[in-house]
Write a protein that binds this DNA or RNA. Sequence first.
RNA 1: GCCGCUAUCGUCUAGAGGCCUAGGACACAGCCCUCUCAAGGCUGGAACACGGGUUCGAAUCCCGUUAGCGGUACCA
Length: 475
Amino acid sequence: MPSPRVRFAPSPTGYLHVGGARTALFNWLFARKTGGTFILRIEDTDRERSTEEHTRVILDGLTWLGITWDEGPYFQGEYLARHRADAERLLAQGAAYRCFCTREELEAARGAAERAGQSFRYDGRCDRLPPAEVEARRARGMPFAVRLRMPDAELAWEDAVHGRISFQGRDFDDFIIFRSDGTPVYNLAVVSDDAAMRITHVIRGDDHISNTPKQIALYRALGQPVPVFAHVPMILGPDGKKLSKRHGATAVGDYQKQGILPLAMRNFLALLGWSPGGDREILSESEMIQLFSLEGIQKKPAVFDLTKLEWMNGQYLSMLPPAELRAPVLRHLAEMGIAAHGLDLDPVIDAVKARSRTLLDVARQVAVRLRGAPAELDPKAIQFVNKLGRTRYRENLERAARRLESLPDWSPAAIAAALATEAETSGQKLGDVMQPIRIALTGGTVSEPVDQLVAVVARAAGREAVLARLRNAAA
RNA sequence: GCCGCUAUCGUCUAGAGGCCUAGGACACAGCCCUCUCAAGGCUGGAACACGGGUUCGAAUCCCGUUAGCGGUACCA
C-alpha cells in the first residue's frame, strides 16, 4: 500500500477557525501516524474574498499549533489551466455538456418552482439540444457553462468514520462544473487538484458529505481512483448551533491572545470529536500520534466547551517549567505596558502559575509582584481589613516589616519561621499576621503562601520594595 | 419539501451482545489539606431520546418515530 497523502485545503476568506484547525490537526495526526504526507493547499479561487493577509494568518495559526506540512502551500488559483483542461476532456468524452441557460433564466425557474412549493431541479434542456444547434450557438459566441451529466447510478462509499454512505445519482441534477466566465466551480477544482496531487485520504468536515457523491461522479468521469473519505463531525456552540462569531472567539488567534498555550489548544481540539479510547485526557504529541485512528473519530458533532479548554490550559501551565512560559508572559506584560526583559522572571512565574488558567492570569499576577499592588483594594480584602480592624491591620504590617527588616535570611522557610514567631508573641492567629501582608503586597486575598510571596517579591523588586510596600499600606 | 448524517450525565466522552448496579474528565456541591486561593485527595448528585422487534440476554444488532444538524447555487 502506497504511503498516504492527505491535505488541508482552507480558503483564505477569513481567519483560521477552530473547526478548520481541528480538521488540519486530524489530517496531520493521520499523516504522522501512517508515515504519510501532509499537504497544504490554499483554495483561493474566490478572488473577491481571498487575501494574502488571511493566508498568512492561517499559516501562522497552524505553525503556532505545531501542525507542520510536508508539501505546499499550493495555491489553487495557479491550476486554472488544468481545471479547464479537465472540463474540456469531460466535454470531449461526452460526460459533460454545454449549458447556454443564463443565470437569469435559471433564477426565474428556481423562483417559480419555489413559489409552487416544489424543489427546483435543472431539467437538462440544454443536454437535449441538437448538435447543430449547439454548434450554431457556439459560432455566435453565446456564453455557456459546463454541466456534468449525473449518472443514474448509486454513488456510495465506505466512509472511514461513518461507514457506508449511499446516494442515488438521480437525486442530483446535472450540476455546473465550469462557469461561463471561464473559472472552475469548487467541486471540479477540488477533484482535479486532489487527483493531480494523488491524495489518498480526504479528511474533511461533515458539511461536505453531500458534495461527495458529486465528486465521486467526477472522479469516475475523469477516470481517476476515488480516495478514501473520512467526514469528521462539526463543532457546535453552547447553544447547539454551528460554532460562529456570535459565540465569541472562533479564531485560533483569539485563543492565543487570551493566553491559551498551543499545546493545550491542540490537545483540547484533538479530544473534540476524537477519543483515544479509555480514560486518556492529557496527551503528549507522540502519544497523540501513536493513539490516533480514523475509527476513533466521533460521528456526532461536539460542543466547544471553553471552561474545559481553560482547565486543560491550567494543567499545561502546572506541568510546564517557567522557562517555557517566559516568552509569552513577556509579550503579555509588554501589552500591559511593562518592559520586563532582562529580569529574572522564572521564580515569579513559578510561584504564580498554579493559580492561573491562562497566560494572561500569569502575566497579571507577575505584574503585581513587579510593580506593587493596585491603588484600590479588592472588595474581599477591604472586608478582611474591616473585620480585623483598621488599627490592628496597620500594627501587624508595621511589626511584620520590623521583623523582616532584622531578618538576615529571606528564604521562605526563614520568613515563615519569623512570622510564626510574630504571631505567637503577639498572641494572634497566624492568618491575622499573614493576610495583611498578602493584601499589602497584592491588593487581594489570594496568592501563593505568604512566605513564598515575600521571597518572590523581594527577588523581583528588592527587599526595600517589600518593606516600603508594607509600610506604605500601613500608613 | 427532498436527499443525507446523527442520537450515552449540563458538556467532552468510555462502551464492538453478558465484564454495566453504565466508567472517566470538565462543571457543580460537600469534606480533607491549609495563612488565603489554587493544585491535589476523597465523597455526592447527574445519562443510554421514544416505541417496536431479534436474542436465553441489548447502551451495543434491525425497523419505525421524534429531535438536531448538513446539503439542496455559474459559494467554498
